[in-house]
Amino acid sequence: MAIVHFVNYKRGTQSRAAMRGVMCYVMQERKTAWEDGPLVSGINCQPQSVYDDFLNTKFLYHKDGGMMFYHMVQSFPKGAAVDPRQAHEAARRLAEYFDGCEVLVCTHVDWEHIHSHCVINSVNFETGKKLHMAKEQLQELMRRNDMICQEMGLPVFEPTAQQARGMSGAEYHTALKGQSWKLRLMNAIDACMKYATDKDAFVSLMESEGYQVRWESSRKYITYTTPDGLKCRDNKLHEEKYCKEAMEYEFRIRAELVKRKLRRAAKIDGGIEADESAEQCAVANSADDPAHCDPVRSAAGDEQIYGAG
């Protein structure tokens, strides 16, 4: 059966922009594309308007703060013959555990193992109560996951695999179509940088793909650990844009662009809707860049890259 885990987000790091970034990341067409169309669906919401659906529920109950969302990943063994549509249905059935909550369900097929991301609104649209995942709820969720997988006849992890650290048995294969593990790491960094609003959001997105990131102010380098336990420092990734200093500079630029748009929106409209629109715009435009930006190019041409007037 599948392994389930929740991506950790540090207290105080979740925001509207972070929530939108995670949604855009998990809904990427190149990750979810399958025969009959993208493996993307919503429970109690529509994928096309999921961000607005989440926010409207929060506004309705005046709970637009604190924990904004939960990010759950359901993973199957690498190399196992899992039909992506079955995996998506298993994730949908598991998402129904969060009764009354809006859940975005996206199944990724770009790795050698199938895995599904579930982004869960922290506010219940029926009761207005905030979702809290205590130990008892987590145990019940795991039991339900096992039951669903057994009913659907889905593959089971080997006992030794479940003792693995990090992603447990759902370790992510480090090569795809002949790419080396280091190139695979660079591709993962690029993908996460396109949707991350800040360092904490970047680290969380990398974790959702099975990577561990050690990024500390007291250390000169960022150290990555792949799902298979291979370690690599940022200065070994061949390009300057992957170095700690360059990435920190990139995030400072993004933060300044968000502030600039918020100030402009406040002058024009002065409303919540204007602020929200500005924040969305800054993140959306940065995500449209084909790779995370060269910080020098960003500083020189941020008007063009991010659409800042």
Rank of each mutant, 00 (worst) to 15 (best):
M1W: 01
A2G: 03
I3E: 05
V4D: 06
F6R: 09
F6E: 06
F6L: 15
V7N: 11
K10R: 15
K10I: 13
G12Q: 07
Q14E: 12
R16P: 09
M19E: 09
R20W: 10
G21V: 05
M23R: 03
C24M: 14
Y25S: 07
V26Y: 00
M27F: 05
M27Q: 10
Q28D: 08
E29V: 08
P38F: 01
L39M: 02
V40K: 06
V40N: 01
S41Y: 04
S41E: 08
G42H: 03
N44M: 01
Q48E: 15
N56H: 11
G65P: 00
F69P: 04
F69V: 09
Q74D: 05
K78G: 01
R85A: 07
A87Q: 01
H88C: 04
A90S: 00
A90D: 03
R93I: 00
A95P: 02
F98N: 03
V103P: 02
H108G: 01
H113G: 04
N121V: 10
S122I: 07
F125C: 07
E126L: 05
K130H: 09
L131S: 05
H132Y: 15
L141W: 05
L141S: 03
M147I: 07
Q150C: 09
G153A: 00
G153M: 00
L154P: 05
V156W: 03
F157H: 07
F157Q: 03
P159Q: 09
Q162G: 13
Q162N: 13
Q162Y: 14
Q163Y: 12
A164Y: 12
R165S: 12
R165L: 11
M167S: 14
A170M: 07
A175M: 05
L176C: 08
L176R: 10
Q179I: 05
Q179V: 11
S180H: 13
K182S: 12
L183T: 11
R184Y: 14
D190P: 10
K199F: 12
F202R: 10
F202T: 07
S204G: 06
L205I: 14
E207S: 13
E207H: 14
E207Y: 06
S208Y: 04
E209Q: 13
E209V: 14
Y211I: 05
Q212S: 12
V213Q: 08
T225R: 09
T226S: 15
L230I: 12
K231A: 07
K236V: 02
L237Y: 14
C243V: 01
A246W: 06
M247H: 06
F251I: 15
F251Y: 15
F251M: 15
I253E: 09
I253W: 10
E256F: 12
E256W: 12
K261W: 13
L262Y: 06
L262G: 04
R264W: 04
A265L: 05
A266P: 01
K267C: 07
D269S: 15
E273T: 10
A274T: 09
A274D: 03
S277Q: 06
Q280I: 11
N285S: 15
N285I: 09
A287P: 01
D289S: 15
P290S: 14
A291P: 01
H292Q: 10
H292P: 04
C293T: 13
D294M: 14
P295W: 08
V296H: 12
A300N: 12
E303V: 15
Y306I: 08
G309E: 13
